[in-house]
């Protein structure tokens, strides 16, 4: 087995181990927040999830632009895997954020710009994933996905801006929750982001490979079937 074949799995494995190590750091190394207490530890999970989710969607956008400039199947596959994993990470971001908010703010949900943006992003990219089920030709489906990938990412900053205008008076704590971190806390947060990054990259690459073999197998099967039909006619 060549390195290229097992690299994704290795990355995912390394990411998983690093994540586990990160958990140990979160509970053993990071100091407990003075005001919020132990609940603040959710932050170390929440932050990497949201960053990598946003990065995934950014990558969807880049791949979509690249696809329209020069169509290539691999670009579509990267965009698809990134969108899938981005939706997964956004879901987890929302869940961890809600759990944190229940304890820290006393409510599950508040219409803070970030929360609103994350939720709307989740809706948009879930719809993007549903495009795969459309009954279209493979080429057209890729084109549709690329167009939606661009439109969706253009909408994200607008959603954030509008949510900020809408709820202009919100406590400053929401805005600088990461402000005033102690050095140890910063270190742990950085470590968590890196660990999640490895895991993320591994997942994306594994999914890309899988999608690639799926496409190839489906191609082979359809040509085989066509051939059989032709021989039957003869």
């Amino acid at each position: 087995m060549s390195l290229k074949q097992i690299l994704p799995a290795l990355l995912a494995l390394a990411g998983g181990l690093l994540l586990a190590a990160g958990w140990w750091l979160i509970f053993m190394y990071a100091p407990t927040e003075a005001i919020m207490g132990a609940i603040q530890k959710i932050f170390y999970i929440h932050l990497p999830l949201s960053w990598w989710a946003l990065f995934s969607f950014f990558l969807v956008f880049l791949c979509s632009v690249a696809y329209l400039v020069r169509p290539g199947e691999h670009l579509d596959r990267i965009a698809r895997s990134c969108a899938e994993i981005g939706v997964l990470l956004t879901t987890l971001t929302l869940v961890t954020g809600m759990l944190w908010g229940r304890k820290a703010w006393g409510v599950w949900w508040t219409w803070d710009p970030r929360l609103t943006t994350a939720l709307i992003m989740w809706f948009i990219y879930t719809a993007y994933l549903l495009l795969g089920g459309l009954n279209l030709s493979e080429q057209r489906r890729r084109m549709v996905r690329a167009v939606v990938g661009i439109v969706a990412f253009a909408d994200v900053p607008l959603v954030f801006l509008s949510a900020r205008l809408w709820r202009s008076i919100h406590p400053a704590v929401f805005a600088n929750e990461s402000g005033g971190l102690e050095p140890e806390m910063k270190l742990v947060a950085l470590f968590s982001v890196l660990a999640m990054g490895f895991f993320w990259l591994g997942l994306v690459l594994v999914r890309c490979q899988q999608l690639k073999s799926q496409d190839r197998i489906e191609d082979l099967l359809s040509t085989e079937q066509n051939r059989e039909e032709q021989t039957e006619q003869l």
Binding site: A127, V159, L165
Partner: peptide, 21 residues
């Protein structure tokens, strides 16, 4: 595409959220 109504609204509604706000 026959299922266009539902998919169109699924995409359009969240995209238009800022403008509707």
């Amino acid at each position: 595409q026959t299922a266009r109504e539902s998919l169109l609204s699924l995409l359009v509604f969240p995209l238009l959220a800022p403008l509707l706000l």
